[in-house]
Write a protein that binds this DNA or RNA. Structure first.
Length: 468
RNA sequence: GGCGGCAUAGCCAAGUGGCUAAGGCAGCGGUCUGCAAAACCGCUAUUCGCCGGUUCGACUCCGGCUGCCGCCUCCA
């Protein structure tokens, strides 16, 4: 049984979906105005891990992630590039999906775009106006916070109308609100901006409304879970609750789950500090995408994660050891006799599941996997693992990887390349030289290959090679 | 100013009122090897930021202090 920390109650709670076996989950997705950065990706990866765990636990998961393709930043970006909003956002939407695939993040059930759900949003806004929760002013529509008693129940923040900073905000805002705390549901169009027709004239949706409209459209009035990074707790999610519950009259979200931010080299990531990384930046530096996935999983989701270059190297080394272990496991001969490892694997599985069920403790789950490696390695080195035992461990790895997504790898010698035959020939020539005692020639070939990035390893079953 | 979080070995990082404080990386020693590489083995926190308190017993609970961070405005 999964226990999850619920922001709403500030404590861990047992999770049970409203409908047995079906989880309705909504995660705040990207605003497609730029490449996703690793902080965004950590959040999306968290969502992936949670969904994978729910699925592995036997649930059907209907997870929806929105694509915000209309807002100030996308409009400005399209304007600057002189292309249509649609053309501009499509480009970054494509990059977003590419990054997900690179990091082995499984596709969500639905990825609705804001611009394709304007009608649903207008329906929500109109209803809110009819019921007295919202008001129109000069073509814009605002949510009236004073009409929703429970405003602030998620974040504990109730904006104070007398707060001096609020008055400053009023001046900056081009849209007149009756109360500085009210938030915009529908923005009156400005010249040159893309707009949609509405009962209040041409305009475009405010930021928060898309989540209410689209989650309701795909998942119904009450969601089992709603995810989003901590910075969204206020005001975004607070506003979502207000507008959704005022609209449906029912509880909007049962479990609010908020992963913490990522920092880089101990500091908040920001463009001005020059520590702002996209996935592409890292891949260009030659980083292994799975090492990036691994590093993003090393800290518990409710803790800030310190992303460092050194950490990336550590992750790669940890993975290489894991992959190498798996390779050696799969090389155990079919007729090998020895330990069946049933007890070891059972214990590892039990620890693995217990960790994940305890507020998705992924570091703990990975520790269970590595602890097994540590336990079995000596037996493997002594040739005391039976064929059954090896298969049992590999089955566990495959099972664990349904959630982790880091164990599956290309067998090192399988890495495809046009010159494989040539490499094989050299490896063979070196082996013959060694057998003939011509170590000078053997070492020469080894150095030659090393220069091409090919590493030779001599094993009991003969030489094997891999690309560095 | 208001609210909240975190401080565990050289680094990253789990965790618990009392069994030997997970796991990873790095380092050192060793095995293996023609030499390497890879792999394997062993060692590496008597101690969990500091000071008090509660308790038979706290790293884990409470209070204070120090430091770091986040939110309160767009932000994953």
């Amino acid at each position: 049984m999964l226990k999850l920390y619920n922001t709403k109650t500030r404590g861990k709670e047992e999770f049970e979906p409203l409908e047995n076996g079906v989880v309705r989950l909504y995660a705040c997705g990207p605003t497609v105005y730029d490449f996703p950065h690793i902080g965004n990706l950590r959040t999306f990866l968290f969502s992936d891990l949670l969904v994978r765990h729910l699925k592995r636990s036997g649930h059907e998961v209907r997870n929806v992630m929105n694509i915000t393709d209309v807002d100030d930043k996308t409009i400005r970006g399209a304007d600057e590039e002189g292309v249509s909003l649609r053309e501009y956002t499509q480009k970054y939407t494509d990059y977003f999906f590419e990054d997900l695939e690179t990091l082995r993040i499984e596709p969500a059930w639905k990825y609705p775009r804001a611009t394709e759900h304007i009608d649903e949003m207008l329906e929500v806004v109109e209803t809110l106006v009819e019921r007295g929760h919202a008001y129109e002013h000069e073509g814009s529509v605002y949510f009236d916070i004073s009409s929703f008693d429970e405003y602030g129940k998620l974040s504990g923040i109730v904006p104070d109308a007398t707060d001096s900073r609020e008055f400053g905000r009023l001046d900056d805002d081009e849209y007149e609100r009756e109360d500085a705390r009210d938030f915009v549901l529908w923005k009156a169009g400005k010249p040159g901006e893309p707009t949609w027709e509405s009962p209040w004239g041409p305009g475009r949706p405010g930021w928060h409304i898309e989540c209410t409209a689209m989650s309701t459209a795909y998942l119904g009035k009450t969601l089992d879970m709603h995810l989003g990074a901590v910075d969204l707790v206020f005001p975004h999610h607070e506003n979502e609750i207000a507008q959704s519950e005022a609209y449906t009259g029912e509880e909007f979200v049962r479990y609010w789950v908020h992963p913490e931010h990522l920092i880089v080299e101990g500091e908040k990531m920001s463009k001005s500090k020059g520590n702002f990384f996209t996935l592409r930046d890292l891949l260009d530096r030659g980083c292994d995408p799975i090492a990036i996935r691994h590093l993003l999983m090393t800290a518990h989701y409710r803790r800030q994660l310190n992303f460092t270059v050194e950490g990336l190297e550590q992750s790669l080394h940890a993975l290489e050891r894991l992959w190498d272990f798996a390779d050696r496991m799969s090389e155990v001969p079919a007729d090998a006799e020895g330990e069946d490892l049933a007890g070891e694997v059972e214990a590892a599985l039990s620890k693995f599941e217990a960790a994940l069920n305890d507020d998705l403790n992924v570091p703990g789950a990975m520790a269970a996997v590595f602890a097994l490696v540590r336990q079995v390695n000596p037996l493997l080195a002594e040739g005391r693992v039976s064929a059954d035992g090896a298969q049992r461990v590999l089955d566990f790895f495959a099972d664990a990887d349904r959630v982790l997504g880091i164990i599956e790898h290309q067998d090192r010698a399988d890495a495809a390349g046009a010159d494989d035959a040539e490499i094989e020939a050299l490896v063979q020539e070196r082996q013959e030289a060694r057998e003939a005692g011509d170590y000078a020639r053997a070492d020469e070939i080894r150095d030659e290959l090393l220069e091409q990035g090919i590493v030779i390893e001599d094993t009991a079953h003969g030489p094997r090679w891999r690309r560095e």
